[in-house]
């Protein structure tokens, strides 16, 4: 499976869950690997790369950690976009 497809799937999963359910890293990996029929480790690698690049972030709201797509406002504050 190419990386781009997995990336798109991860974003799709997170967009769909936005505002409804906070997803943990583990949840995203499970859902993506089931829907795409790929190994969990492959999804994990792509997910971690997205986090490392700052395209995704860990969040700590509601007393537990989850993975989220950062807002533009946050990325601007961080100086990651102008």
């Amino acid at each position: 499976m190419d990386t781009e497809t997995i990336k798109n799937k991860i974003f799709e999963i997170l967009e769909k869950a936005k505002g409804k359910k906070k997803l943990k890293e583990k949840d995203v990996i499970r859902i993506a690997s089931e829907e795409l029929n790929v190994e969990k480790d492959d999804v994990k690698k792509v997910l971690r790369d997205l986090i490392e690049e700052g395209k995704l972030c860990y969040s700590y709201t509601g007393g537990a950690s989850s993975v989220e797509i950062p807002s533009e406002e946050y990325l601007r504050e961080k100086g990651m976009i102008k």
């Binding site: 505002g19 906070k22 509601g62 007393g63």
Partner: peptide, 12 residues
């Protein structure tokens, strides 16, 4: 409505 998840809140 904007900030909270229903099942998580009930379970808390």
């Amino acid at each position: 409505k904007n900030m909270c998840e229903l099942p998580t809140t009930i379970a808390s």
